[in-house]
Amino acid sequence: MPGGLQRRAMQPAATPPRRGGPRSAWTGRRAADVRGAAMSRLAATFARLRAGGQPGLVTFTTAGDPDLRLSGEILGALDRGGADVLEVGVPFSDPLADGPVIQRATERALASGSNLTAALGLIARLRPGLSAPVVIFSYANPLLRMGVDEFARRAAGAGVDGVLALDLPIEEADSFRETLAGRGLDTIFLLSPTTSDARIRKAAALGRGFLYGISRLGVTGARDRVADGASEMVQRIRAHTDLPLALGFGISRPEHVAEVNACADAAVVGSALVSLIGEAGHSPDVVDRVEAYVRWLKGAATPKGTTHANA
């Protein structure tokens, strides 16, 4: 096991990185904004976005799509291109909450030999060179199959910051959340248009890092426009919590990112990015195209509080 793997778990709470210090292998460039080690890398990232009034962008890609090597290069490109949080999907045989685009990505990743162990290996290898926090995005069964204790140990060792288990709602997640917290990992919960105010409060009380809002019903997939109910949903969530909020589902263009950032802390781009990867196949220029795409998405989003440019 590379020496760096255990560092995050072993790092004592007492030595916050110096402001403006060099890029640290384990805290990344966000180290400058970490006010204390009690603040997770995710919390620090969102604090930085809020402090600077900057638009946030969360990206989703599947580990091992189109293969593990290119998938690693793609994560590096997303990081360079300005993604603020990298969500790494664990391929699972039965992705029942995903639309066709991510289903295909899952199939490509599984065919390339990817799985939870490989995803954690990929993250461990990349972590020293990445700035953005990394969130594992998975269906419950691969995590449960590995064993929650073992998963938490390995994920913390790999430098993972947070975990979102898609089909592990708050009610099923008690011991999961506690085990993850014991390893310094944030458990991220989803909020949907069907989530009641009572459960928003529960998710806000139990969730760490950020909340992930899905702005409309349905499986994952890009749409021409952001759902009409998005800002209303954000207001409903904001009435109960100040946790950072990333809003996803259907985002594919800079104006979507800008629109979402007008009310939330970050926009999540998933299917549109994954489509681009799918279209590129194994061609090596996929890495440059991904980086350019993220820059395009991010660049058109103006700082918060100013008028949004129409792209």
């Binding site: 909450a97 089909d167 949907s192």
Partner: peptide
């Protein structure tokens, strides 16, 4: 109350389906 028969059962669904 949580839909378990012993250690089996439960409600492992995406958030959108929980309240419905």
């Amino acid at each position: 109350a949580r839909g378990y028969f012993g250690a089996f059962g439960g409600r492992y669904v995406p958030e959108t389906l929980v309240e419905p």
